[in-house]
Design a protein around this nucleic acid. Sequence first.
RNA 1: GUGAGCGUAGCCCAGAGGUCUAAGGCGCCAGGUUGUGGCCCUGGAGAUCGAGGGUUCAAAUCCCUCCGCUCACCCCA
Length: 420
Amino acid sequence: MYKAPRGTSDILPEEQGYWRYIEDKAVALCRLYGYQRLDTPAFEDVRLFARSIGEGTDIVAKEMYTFKDRSGNTLALRPEGTAPVCRVYVEYGLDNLPQPVKLYYLATIFRYERPQAGRYRQHYQFGFEAIGDADPALDAEVIDMAWQFFLSLGLNQLYLQINSIGCKICRPPYLESLKHYYSAHVADICPDCKARIVRSPLRLLDCKKPSCHDVAEAAPKGTDYLCQGCQTHFEAVQRYLRILELPFEINHRLVRGLDYYTRTVFEIQPPGEGAQSALGGGGRYDNLIEELGGKPTSAIGFAAGMERIVLNLKGQEIPVPSLPRPEIFIAYLGAEAKLEAVKLASALRQDGIAVTMAVGDRSLKAQLRQANSLGSNYVAIIGEEEVKRQAVTLRHMISGEQQVVSPLTLRKLLKKVTRG
RNA sequence: GUGAGCGUAGCCCAGAGGUCUAAGGCGCCAGGUUGUGGCCCUGGAGAUCGAGGGUUCAAAUCCCUCCGCUCACCCCA
């Protein structure tokens, strides 16, 4: 028997309420903040990702779904959402629009990873990017927007963490100092961290092993090494966040896994200890557009994992609106009545009313049972009696009241009742 | 890539060598009402017990291999 590939999942009708809920909130949020939707292909030239995310990152080194197509081009299923947006910005000359350009996406992301709770090989991300300005007020607006998104979903007790990882001027000296510090403490750290000293020093700070905790706590702080520009920027961001009354905290150990980040990085965490728990994260990437062939352009963005949001909505028992149900179910008894039922269903749909018609010539009892489980408020019953009288029996499923009316009257009644 | 746990009907699961022709609940179908749902009652369908091999007089149950799922590490949303 065929099964969904490892790390992928099917979103069955009964789950769709969560997804519609999240998407609706995302779209409403983007309207409020002035972001426009952008859809890009599921795959891109592999180099777009390799260059932007960083050759040394896990995502590029071992997690991309890379393939050659029949003409020999090497493509990759998108492993993140920011690079394609930047590609579009450069390719279509969006630098000619008033800046910053604000775009959002709801898209599938693909990474070849070992699946576990909240981590999949295909997942959905909602993300938004503001490209074309370095104003710290824009950082604050993006962080605010991310925070308001989760608030609008009804999620509680979230943590907002921010940090600054500097720029290409002040980060190298900091990394040197970090390496120097850790080299002096190799005896106290885990084997993974020893490897990180060379491979990805920033990640040293992120190690969750208790044994490394003290060493990381005492490590040089990136914010102490910021150049004048980055320092001023970071302070300004915090000032705006305070004005917005966002409950942020500075986490000196917050770093992010993609190479393109500069200055502000931030993450939103749910309550509890979950393993790979970040609901969303983002940051500034002031060099990326230029690296992709555009003019030097500052930008900042955010992305959230939709599956993790669903997980948290369920965990916090947040109710989501139920999906639409048929307004009326049409039951029939006998071949002649069936013809009338088909006609009535068509007429009601012309009126814009959601109709489910019974099929399969089953007992009235079975048909009503089905109407009940579909959750329709009304059932129209057409049997021999009704055919003879050119009428239908309209049953209200909540009160149980019934009346015999003409098809025309039925249409008028339903139009009135289902409006609004 | 590493480690741990788990695979019994569509779903949740009992079962721990013979009493298993595998129990129960949900769901599904039908009847209780010659044309009336939700509650209740009755009945029914639905399981190569993940696959293959082995031990044994006897395997859902013990052993091995494989496959799959889950959780954790790594890393990320």
